[in-house]
């Protein structure tokens, strides 16, 4: 008789057992009274990680602030799919100005609230990776440096997906985009130095920096809530798979995000005042190929002429993440099948 072996690593992952908790320990999303900051009816693609991440994060912020919050949005998918005139999916006061200025606009909102003595109202700026790591970086760095009372959330899907999947400063190495096509001897995105916004944020020594993914709802909610316990500049970097740009099935979004953490590709951690204070350990480490292979943007690394050399370079990057963030408990075996 076929028997399913119990997978102990699932315990504590919050993937199971939620119903056994007291209601006040349940996730914000599990609450029947959840606020749905980003309501249904918007025009995001099926399986959109960003829509999921934004609702998770802002619902948690709404709960943490008693709904006393204002959101400022950069131009991008999140802005376009949520507010096709004359409709809006936002249940919070929401302002969209430009692509590159969301952190500065958020600063302005916070300054106005302070001048008016309404410091109980909190400000969240948000945008995609293009709006954050590329065109918005100067404004974001200014907001960090001044320690303005703003939580900025980056929903990182590794490219300019709204304009049709072009390369951004956050596009991972070797990934194919429409401006880094899978052709030539070095197909896909070139191997540059990369740009880790969480580390850049930490270099500003701001009170709180954290990373999260849509695969771990409880962790994401915790970090949004934790961020609201600080005053000053805070940064939350959320990995949000994009079925369109990553060429994955729409029902794989959570799975791919989980693989990003389990391979060490995307380290999940939190830092206070520039120092790492918590790391989500990888319980069962997987080789990067497990993460790369299901994604169409890496298809050129597999198939008839696999690029083991490129996969090895990506594996080396993941290994470095594991080393530098201490992602694997030394007592755990790595790379088990």
């Amino acid at each position: 008789m076929t028997q399913q072996r119990v997978r102990f690593y699932q315990i504590g992952s919050y993937a199971a057992g939620n119903r056994l908790l007291d209601p006040d320990q349940g996730s914000v999303q599990a609450d029947a009274q959840r606020t749905n900051s980003l309501n249904s009816g918007h025009r995001a693609c099926q399986g959109c990680g960003e829509a999921l991440g934004a609702r998770y994060a802002l619902d948690a912020v709404m709960r943490a602030t008693g709904n006393q919050m204002v959101a400022v949005n950069a131009t991008g998918c999140l802005e376009v799919f949520s507010t096709p005139y004359p409709e809006t999916a936002w249940q919070v006061p929401w302002l969209h100005s430009l692509f590159g200025n969301a952190p500065a606009v958020a600063t302005g909102v916070a300054a106005a609230l302070k001048a008016k003595g309404r410091t109980g109202v909190r400000v969240v700026g948000q945008g995609g990776d293009g709006g954050t790591v590329d065109i918005g970086l100067a404004c974001l760095s200014g907001m960090f440096e001044r320690n303005d009372d703003v939580l900025y959330i980056c929903y990182d899907n590794g490219g300019y997906m709204n304009t049709g999947v072009q390369r951004s400063g956050a596009t991972p190495h070797a990934a194919a985009t429409t401006t880094t096509p899978a052709v030539g001897p070095e197909p896909g995105n070139n191997f540059g130095q990369g740009k880790s916004l969480p580390l850049i944020a930490m270099a500003h020594r701001i009170p709180y920096v954290a990373t999260a993914t849509v695969a771990d709802l409880r962790d994401l909610e915790y970090k949004a809530k934790r961020a609201m316990e600080f005053r000053g500049a805070r940064y939350l970097h959320v990995l949000v798979p994009c079925p369109l740009g990553w060429r994955t099935a729409s029902n794989q979004t959570i799975q791919i995000a989980r693989l990003a953490t389990e391979t060490g590709i995307f380290p999940v951690f939190e830092a206070e005042d520039g120092e790492v204070v918590g790391v989500s350990k990888i319980r069962r480490r997987r080789p990067v190929s497990d993460y790369l292979e299901p994604q169409g943007r890496y298809a050129h690394l597999f198939g008839a002429a696999p690029r083991e050399d490129v996969i090895a370079r990506i594996q080396a990057e993941a290994d470095r993440n594991v080393r530098s963030f201490g992602l694997v408990d030394p007592r755990c075996r790595s790379m088990e099948g």
Partner: peptide
């Protein structure tokens, strides 16, 4: 941009 955010608030 700061002026925009402040004015809208």
């Amino acid at each position: 941009s700061v002026a925009i955010g402040a004015s809208a608030t």
